[in-house]
């Protein structure tokens, strides 16, 4: 009898509610990439319609990319750190100080290649300082970041002084074309391959998902952390170069507050700042472009600046809400 009723249950076709179907879609591997891109596309189409096509003009599109470059590069860089479940919001200050080093080197040599090299090396070296403190003193990167922000900010103030350090305008603008696009594409592709197609990325995501388990499977977390900070350093240094050639001067406040912008871009792009298996390296770039699209689009629509802040805030909340998993259990790194 009981066996017969059991058979009857098995014969019933499963009935899925809409919520179940949505859950299934959200668990698909492509979803973390597709959703932020879809949202970005919706915004672009919306603004294109509302501005009568003006939003799709070449100059506007170029403008959006120009404004997204710096945060996008940094967000791509810090994805390596975020993946391991660690947060470093001192990257803005690291970039600032790297810019100062580069600008000072330019002041002495008047050579753009030297400025670029010093900024890049500066970014890597400063990120390695953060990393060394984390590893040697066994301090969480977030705590190191708090201290590093103060130190780097103070150094910027002392080194720059009252007047910003100028870099030649024409030489800087010459680098805004091919050099900037070329280096960014190269860096982004390298990050993409390393992160998604090699053991390096897999190990970093594994550590972010479950560090204890990663250690027990033989992954060297110290080595992984060093690799993460080195790649982050390259990106932060590169963002420093872009910052310098964009503004053609370096002031003592450069980069301050940018760490939060990077974090926001990462979250908007669909990646958890707590890392884990669903992390990706392109989320920050998508997020940075989304922020710029919103700002530019709303301004072009004539929305007042005070309203923009409100509208932007609501859209951010909505995007994060739609792209996040609600917690059914206690918080873990695998969830927002």
């Amino acid at each position: 009898m009981s066996a017969a009723s059991g058979m009857a249950i098995q014969k019933q076709s499963p009935k899925l509610t809409l919520a179940d179907r949505i859950d299934i879609i959200k668990n698909k591997r492509f979803f973390p990439l597709a959703f932020p891109l879809a949202m970005l596309a919706v915004l672009v189409v919306l603004f294109a319609v509302l501005t009568g096509g003006q939003f799709l003009q070449g100059s506007v599109v170029k403008n959006i990319f120009n404004q997204s470059f710096i945060v996008g590069t940094m967000a791509t860089a810090v994805a390596f750190i975020y993946s391991t479940g660690n947060i470093d919001f001192s990257v803005g200050n690291v970039m600032g100080l790297a810019c100062v080093f580069g600008a000072l080197a330019y002041e002495v040599t008047e050579s753009m290649p030297v400025m670029i090299a010093v900024t890049l090396v500066g970014g890597i070296a400063l990120m390695m300082c953060n990393c060394t403190l984390c590893i040697a003193c066994h301090i969480k990167p977030a705590m190191v970041a708090i201290v590093a922000m103060s130190i780097y900010s103070a150094l910027c103030t002392v080194l720059v002084g009252a007047d910003p350090i100028r870099v030649d305008y024409q030489a800087s603008k010459a680098l805004e074309g091919g050099f900037r696009y070329g280096t960014f594409i190269l860096y982004f592709l390298v990050c993409l391959i390393l992160y998604h197609r090699t053991a390096i990325g897999r190990k970093l995501r594994f550590i972010g998902g479950n560090e204890t388990c990663a250690v027990q499977t033989g992954i060297n977390t110290t080595k992984a952390q060093i690799i993460a900070f080195v790649f982050a350093g390259v990106g932060v240094g590169l963002a420093g170069v872009y910052q310098t050639i964009r503004t053609t001067s370096v002031a003592q406040t450069v980069g301050s507050g940018m760490g939060m912008d990077v974090m926001l871009a990462t979250v908007l792009g669909g990646m958890s700042i707590f890392g884990g298996t669903k992390s990706n390296v392109y989320a920050g770039l998508i997020g940075a472009i989304t922020v710029t699209v919103l700002n530019t689009g709303l301004l072009m629509l004539g929305v007042s600046s005070t309203m923009i802040q409100g509208v932007r805030g609501v859209i951010f909340l909505l995007l994060v809400f739609l792209n996040s998993e609600r917690q059914k259990t206690l918080p873990s790194r695998q969830q927002f």
């Binding site: 709303l298 629509l301 004539g302 929305v303 007042s304 309203m307 923009i308 409100g310 509208v311 609501v314």
Partner: peptide, 11 residues
């Protein structure tokens, strides 16, 4: 509502 308010507030 916010977008509409924002747009309509422009003038």
């Amino acid at each position: 509502a916010l977008i509409l308010a924002g747009c309509s507030s422009a003038p």
